[in-house]
Design a protein around this nucleic acid. Structure first.
Lengths: 332, 332
DNA sequence: GTTATTAGGTTAAACGTTTAACCTCTTTTC
DNA sequence: GAAAAGAGGTTAAACGTTTAACCTAATAAC
């Protein structure tokens, strides 16, 4: 069996309270006792039982990152940022992927809430987030990341500035003279998609161009999905001369389809992608991308979670700017 | 405060034991009592305190995945597989990235061992794994993934067949007529690197070609690292006509450098990469890759961990085959 | 030379579950 | 109709920590 504090205490000839105090530094302890206890601790490589500690302290020193999909570049890098920051701050990280499954997401939040973690960073599946209020109102720290919804009260969030990036990308394409710009989006009805499309609409409006529902197509956030979406879009609306694609895998899928259709980028169809990827600059042509800082979003989200844990009234909203890195696929 | 079993018991007019029994189904309970208790449970959305449960049961129902680096395609997909399988089996997953830091790895295993998790899937940083024996001998379940070392006894592992893939890739290049084949590797002195290089050597030997230390270069598993490694290799040994590159990011970095040097792929330098990536087929030329199934490795690793938890004597070794997917960069 | 203060410990209650042992009725068995 | 078995509960002891309250001897204060 695993060694316990009681046995350490016996071997060091002190009470368990003393062992606890030397380990945690919660009381003055004489030099000799201290080193005698630490000697025994090291001898057995003793580590306090986390469950007991948590039960008593009501603090787990672990946080959870709950995402709605894992095999996704953005999410991977987000995870990296969160994990790194958690580690730096002495926290452990629990990772759960809800796989875009809303009931499972609810269930997950519920069990994590029961003394498994001190707080949650959540990238939610849907906009139906009212159920979160039950937890946040009870003082359980949750921070929303990437996707959000105004229905959740008193809850910090950190996102990219999706509206602005949608606007900027569209504007750039407009400045290149494009008037018929298609969008391939990954997931319907989430704030990220909606905000970017809002930016797109407003940019069009600034140029006096009417919004056309036919120019939107769902790409399901996959290569294959985007390929068929691109095909639909370009056959249905032959005037489309530029595409704005809302994630990296879909950008790759689209390019693949365009090559298959023998369409030249950017001459026949210009492209701006969302989310940079490692090979973007060695593709022919190198692809122009909106780059968001997912790792930084993760780090900040963790810091805000910590702030929320220590200071329950605090509600910070952070919106990080993104950059348009211009390469060749837009026509530049 | 969070609601406890005691309060549920009071409101349902039963003892806490009874509440526990209805929740866990550990005893016959009358229909009325059962529904009365469940009524109160649902009313307050009660969930048992995990810390208390763990303390009593000595079982956490969570596993840990400890990797040595996170921002890496292979690791991301491995994580995906592990998380998915854990979720399916009703386990939670703890994720920690040791950042190739050996002391931190040791420390991590130590705290995870103290009733935080029921077992660990470890992709270790170094070959210095003797310290693990202390834990495995005490019956703590650990399964090694990807990297391993024979010094760890009684410990299951699941890896790709690195020797064979090293052999196959080299052979393919040899069949194309290449006699001077460089290797860019990511991390020195780990089993993955060593096994692949062993395969490379043996393939060369089968063709009667002497092994040349100068044909190896460290690429640090990054784009930049590989770019400078490629440059070094090609200027130092001008006869090199093919490159075998041991991870995806390094493949991209190398291609980028070759383009910069105005070298044609595959005419001036042929390339085979290790680890497929989403854009491999839209790059010009499409890149020939060894593809390993990291997600499957993850799933299997979790199953083996579970097996080890339930059956401590079990020691399974799994070695998964990889495929050479042939595209254009090898000269085909 | 009494009284406070401090240093260095110990005792014991609590954290919220689980579960063996026990109890009390009913029902079954022969 | 007495004994055995079963159904449906309860009691209380763990699980391994933390921490407030308490204790004692030594030192400081005046």
């Amino acid at each position: 069996m695993k060694i316990t504090m009681k046995e350490i205490a016996k071997e060091a000839n002190v009470s368990v309270a003393t062992v606890s105090h030397v380990i945690n530094g919660t009381k003055q302890i004489s030099k000799e006792t201290h080193s005698r206890v630490m000697g025994v601790v090291r001898k057995y490589n003793y580590m306090p039982n986390q469950a007991a500690k948590t039960l008593k302290r009501q603090k787990t020193m672990t946080a959870a990152l709950v995402v709605s999909s894992l095999p996704d570049t953005f999410v991977s890098e987000l995870t990296y940022g969160v994990e790194e920051r958690a580690r730096e701050m002495g926290y452990h990280l629990m990772l759960v992927n809800t796989n875009e499954n809303v009931p499972y997401e609810k269930e997950t939040i519920n069990v994590l809430h029961s003394n498994m973690v001190d707080g949650i960073i959540l990238s939610p599946t849907s906009s139906d987030l009212e159920y979160l209020n039950e937890f946040t109102e009870a003082g359980f720290p949750i921070v929303l990341v990437n996707r959000y919804h105004p229905v959740v009260k008193n809850t910090p969030r950190v996102t990219g500035d999706n509206y602005q990036t949608g606007y900027d990308a569209t504007l750039h394409l407009l400045e290149h003279g494009h008037r018929d710009i298609g969008i391939i989006y990954g997931v319907p009805d989430v704030s990220t998609t909606n905000d970017r499309i809002r930016g797109y609409r407003d940019a069009l409006e600034a140029y006096g161009i009417p919004f056309n529902e036919d120019y939107l197509e769902l790409g399901a956030a996959t290569k294959k999905g985007a390929a068929t979406a691109a095909e639909k879009l370009l056959t249905r609306s032959r005037k489309i001369s530029a595409l704005f694609i809302l994630n990296d895998l879909m950008t790759i899928g689209t390019i693949s389809k365009l090559k298959e259709m023998n369409l030249l980028i950017p001459d026949d169809v210009a492209i701006i992608g969302f989310g940079d990827f490692p090979s973007a600059e060695i593709i022919d042509p190198p692809v122009t991308n909106i780059i968001q800082p997912p790792e930084q979003i993760g780090r900040i989200a963790f810091d805000i979670l910590l702030d929320k844990i220590e200071n329950p009234e605090s509600v910070k909203h952070v919106e990080l700017p993104a950059n348009l890195v211009i390469r060749k696929s837009c026509g530049c």
